[in-house]
Simulated scan of single mutants.
Amino acid sequence: MLTFRAILFFSVCLLFFPTNAIRSLPIKVSSIGYEKKIKDESFMEFSEAPEYRNQEKCQLSLIHVAMTIDWEYLRGSVAAVHSVLKHSSCPENVFFHFIASDSRSEHDNDFAKIVQSAFPALRFKVYLFRESLVNNLISPSIRQALDSPLNYARSYLADLLDPSIERVIYLDSDVVVVDDIQNLSTVPLTGSRAVGAPEYCHVDFSRYFSDQFWSNPEFSDVFAGKRPCYFNTGVMVMDLVRWREGDYTREIEKWMEIQKQRRIYELGSLPPFLLVFGGDVEAIEHRWNQHGLGGDNVVSSCRSLHPGPVSLLHWSGKGKPWVRLDAGMSCPVDHLWAPYDLYKHYDHLRNAGTIDTLHLGL
């Protein structure tokens, strides 16, 4: 666990460490930045991360972490993995489950090669998510990016992962972890709760659903006797045994079917989670999801960290740190992400001294 000042100091120190030898793997990718478009002919190459080893006290138990993986967020995914390993007391115990879309299934082996090149000792598996499971259930939302079928893969982890896996941490690809992931993995889920996440009860929960939803007891009674709070589904601890027992994937699908017919919400994959779990989430400390660092869904807006200690930083919103850094339009918090970036092209920015601490108020 790090305070904001500690993170800043730690980040600045890391910028002066030499990078390891590079295991290059050219992969085509397209990405759109501010005024700049990287064409399909460009390549992504990642440096090999340092080798992170277990401390002597480590037990044999595995910590399972699930993430989606695609071309647009690949750079973020690699940085997220790097951050988890760097701060883990037992990095060799962390097993990553990467979920890729079957819409470009010819590339699932490419993802495996990329991950292997950056983290040769990493324990991981790449799964294919069948988009057909949700294609007919997705309703248009207020932002096209929210309509990607892969956004809904987190609802199917209990089906995708081996039945022997009882608990998993789900992470979005635009996060970095600056605390020991083991501290998150051991959070107790009390009672019959299947999901744990930081809750934000000061947020107006009603705004996540339409007037038609709240005026119809057939829908709104789902929260009867509960105190539902907003939670961000980009960071969750999930008990897959309880999830399977509750058949929660089917419950989420039922609400998506209602949405197709009645239009009861606007925000993609989040509202079905709120409908199924709102008021019955294990509240985890806010340090585990400093979300919204990507701005208030406005590319050019900068957000500061929330007050209090920080264990995980989350660039939810439109502004992604790798895009803003490359465009020379970074926010101060983006410099906390940069030390975990293994993208080879970014080395020239470090070497040229483009990344500095001038914006950070040190």
Rank of each mutant, 00 (worst) to 15 (best):
K39F: 09
N351S: 12
W71M: 13
S61N: 15
D70N: 15
H359D: 15
N232H: 07
F4L: 15
Q144G: 07
L8H: 04
L8S: 07
F16R: 09
V237E: 00
D204K: 12
H87F: 15
S192R: 03
P309Q: 05
K57N: 08
A66W: 01
S117C: 04
V177N: 06
C13A: 15
T354G: 07
I69Q: 01
S155E: 09
H107D: 10
L184W: 00
S132Q: 13
L146Q: 09
N289S: 14
R193I: 01
L305P: 11
H286T: 15
A153C: 13
T190R: 09
F98M: 00
L146M: 12
M256T: 03
R104H: 15
H359I: 14
P50E: 01
Y52T: 02
Y73G: 05
H291R: 15
E266C: 07
K39H: 07
V323A: 10
S132M: 09
N289K: 09
V168F: 03
V195R: 00
S11I: 01
P91M: 12
S192P: 00
D110G: 03
E41I: 09
A158E: 01
V281Y: 04
L312P: 05
R130G: 12
F16D: 05
L274R: 06
V29C: 13
S139W: 11
Q212F: 11
H348Q: 14
V237F: 01
L74C: 05
S141L: 06
I32A: 08
W71S: 12
